[in-house]
């Protein structure tokens, strides 16, 4: 198959022909139909991620069609349209048994712990635990965009941030994670402030639900601006500059405006 391969950290990757992956006993091989470009792939290529061994194929936000399944796989077969979260849980450890596959103690990550989806095919292990079926009407490109940034934001806003209607949410950074968070928090009924350095991104943030914007390159004191807009402070502040892992700060009351006094 064709794949994007880098042999050394920081040196230009090339398109190479490499052996096709074979399915693990409990895994599948997916024909990649779409794969997202994420800054964490860049970090991996730069050598910032300890888990990568060379040569390496990046890519962790993927959607495609199952072409082969190992013999222990019971839920998936060739032809199924699927995506997968970037943190693939083993399904057996303490974290997985408690329902927290995203922090599995033995997680694999396509494009980090193994070869990823900047390729025609990618192997994913523990398929029964980790694959997600795509709705028929969902395009592969949209599905690929979910796998890292959109789901990270969904969990940050809904499950971790526990955002409720009417709360103020300040989102710092309007890249993939930030824009996803703005859309999701708005859908949850929150009032969202988008913060970024460019008016172009802030305009787009408004289109997808932000009720207020702050251009941090022209606003001397962003924390003060957030306090003014929110009458005291945001209930939740999300750092959407560093992904895929993202940090949210939650305050029990509006008064806790220290929520925005983060390092970003």
């Amino acid at each position: 198959m064709k794949a994007v391969v880098f042999e050394k950290f920081g040196e230009a990757p090339t398109i190479q022909t490499v052996p096709d992956p074979k399915p693990a006993a409990d895994g599948v091989v997916i024909k990649v139909e779409a794969t997202g470009l994420c800054r964490s792939d860049w970090h991996g290529w730069m050598g910032h991620d300890e888990g990568i061994t060379l040569p390496h194929v990046p890519g962790h936000e993927l959607a495609g069609v199952v072409v082969a399944a190992g013999k222990q796989v019971s839920r998936w077969k060739a032809g199924d349209r699927v995506t997968v979260p970037f943190a693939v849980g083993c399904g057996r450890c303490f974290e997985c048994n408690s329902g927290n596959h995203q922090v599995c103690e033995h997680q694999s990550q396509p494009g980090f712990t193994g070869w990823g989806s900047f390729a025609e095919y990618v192997g994913i292990e523990h398929a029964d635990t980790n694959l997600v079926r795509l709705p028929d009407e969902m395009e592969f490109a949209t599905a690929a965009s979910l796998g890292c940034r959109f789901v990270t934001s969904f969990r940050a806003i809904v499950d971790q941030g526990r955002v409720t209607p009417g709360e103020w949410v300040a989102v710092h950074g309007c890249g993939g994670v930030g824009l996803s968070a703005i859309m999701i928090a708005s859908a949850m009924g929150a009032n969202v402030i988008a913060i970024d350095l460019t008016d172009e991104k802030l305009e787009f943030a408004k289109k997808i639900g932000a009720v207020a914007t702050i251009n941090a390159s022209t606003t001397p004191n962003v924390v003060k601006a957030v306090k003014q807009i929110t009458n005291g402070g945001a209930h939740m502040s999300m750092d959407a500059l560093g992904h895929p892992t993202t940090v949210s700060t939650r305050s029990p009351t509006c008064a806790g405006a220290g929520a925005t006094s983060r390092s970003d």
Partner: peptide, 25 residues
């Protein structure tokens, strides 16, 4: 002093996708 919570998010479990997928649908 403000009893803030700092929370990480590291993607989402496959079984939790259904809520998001229904909001998309």
């Amino acid at each position: 002093a403000f009893e803030l919570e700092i929370l990480g998010s590291h993607g989402m479990q496959a079984y939790r996708y259904s809520a998001m997928m229904e909001m998309i649908r």
